[in-house]
């Protein structure tokens, strides 16, 4: 199963096995990864599962849809590599994905 590494804002890394077809957010919540709130439960309606995708994985993770861009307006410290983790679906190509979580989601 693809491995995903979550790095929290203090630099602590947690590597977790995710299922192909699940979202990065679901993988984080199921495994108790901190700093991902996912208040709306994955409906792309709250911007509280904001992550920064590691530069090396930016292309593989893809770019936000216009709906996701709209929701990112509600996040803080949005950067060019910002994504909502509920909108990144795990594929075999994302094995090794690294994302960093922001200090605050809401």
């Amino acid at each position: 199963m693809p491995k995903i590494t979550f790095i929290d804002h203090l630099g602590t890394a947690r590597t977790i096995e995710g299922e192909v077809g699940a979202t990065v957010m679901e993988t984080a919540v199921k495994n108790g990864v901190p700093e991902i709130d996912a208040e709306c439960g994955g409906a792309c309606a709250c911007a509280t599962c904001h992550v920064y995708v590691d530069e090396a994985w930016a292309a593989a993770a893809g770019t936000p849809s216009s709906m996701e861009e709209d929701m990112l307006d509600f996040a803080y410290d949005v950067r060019p590599n910002s994504r909502l983790s509920c909108q990144i679906r795990i594929t075999p190509e994302l094995d090794g994905l690294v994302v960093t979580t922001p200090e605050r989601q809401a």
């Binding site: 208040e39 709250c46 911007a47 509280t48 307006d73 509600f74 803080y76 809401a106």
Partner: peptide
């Protein structure tokens, strides 16, 4: 001298 941030709602 005034700021109005509109970042949506939270519960």
């Amino acid at each position: 001298d005034r700021m109005l941030p509109f970042f949506g709602l939270t519960m």
